[in-house]
Design a protein around this nucleic acid. Structure first.
Lengths: 157, 157
DNA sequence: TATTGTTATACTCTATAACTATA
DNA sequence: TATAGTTATAGAGTATAACAATA
């Protein structure tokens, strides 16, 4: 038992555990994102994921989500389009806007990466005890909520 | 209480929590790494961190740790050296080898980023309940151990 | 000859600035 | 004129291939 006389474990200990987890997760994400079939960069994968999440999104919207400027997003789309993973089409309502959509290959790629990621994660979680998984779920639920609050607080400032 | 009749929470639920945490951590890492003073890229920060961790390391060693090829590492070092964050010096024992070391500025930059990161993390952890922190520490300890095992298993394969 | 780095070249990512087309 | 994108240009990250220096 740690020193939990009312205030729980030392922040430094939890902090170290989170930093170690961050390192492991980064490695896992990188690894599972690198598919041998289609070679797409992390930026390209992120862009595809954003387009999938939004369904219909224009180029400026994508740039905002990427935290990049439109010209960078445009170049990314050039390559994704050339790779056959994404399409550009003028909006019917406003011919200035370019609506982005995934191709069948784009959707398949995202699905494959997601599958790899969940599999790799399941392998790790499967090596944990039921009590460990329970603790992880409980702890992460609170952590995610707190991280979300801290982030939205920063957005306001 | 979740459905823990002996086998703990559903893997999918834990998996989702881990994925959400990974997203939050990535955002936090990116944000705290971007210092307004010296503008260094994520790759450069990673290289500096590796050099600090190893104390004395040559260029091929750095490349291996970066999971990159020597020429890429050499180019990275060009820029870190130009920025005054790192020094190159021929090894006294083997004049082929180039030993890398951080400058005072390089060490200061790493320290600042680490400080920012721990502060941001402390803010989140401070918003959690003592029980939540306890659960997080317990869960992550097992998770990190399992992730470590899975990784070393892959290295063997 | 093998090892350690660097340089030449090329492609992606990103940004700034200038430009086109639409509203 | 304001907005949505694209293109020109440039610097950084990365890889392959060719090269130099040392062992």
């Amino acid at each position: 038992m740690t020193s939990s006389h009312g205030r729980g474990p030392r922040t430094a200990d939890v902090s170290s555990a989170v930093e170690a987890a961050a390192e492991a997760l980064t490695a896992l994400w990188d690894r599972t994102q690198r598919t041998p079939k289609t070679r797409v960069s992390p930026s390209q994968m992120q862009a595809l994921a954003i387009v999938e999440r939004h369904g219909q999104i224009n180029l400026n919207g994508l740039a905002a989500e990427l935290d990049a400027i439109p010209s960078s997003a445009s170049r990314l789309c050039d390559r994704l389009q050339a790779a056959g993973l994404l399409t550009r089409a003028a909006s019917v309502h406003n011919r200035r806007e370019v609506m982005l959509a995934l191709t069948r290959d784009g959707r398949a790629l995202l699905a494959e990466v997601g599958r790899n990621r969940r599999q790799a994660l399941a392998l790790i979680l499967g090596d944990m005890s039921p009590a460990g998984r329970e603790a992880l779920l409980t702890g992460l639920a609170e952590f995610n909520a707190a991280a979300h609050d801290a982030t939205s607080w920063e957005r306001r400032a």
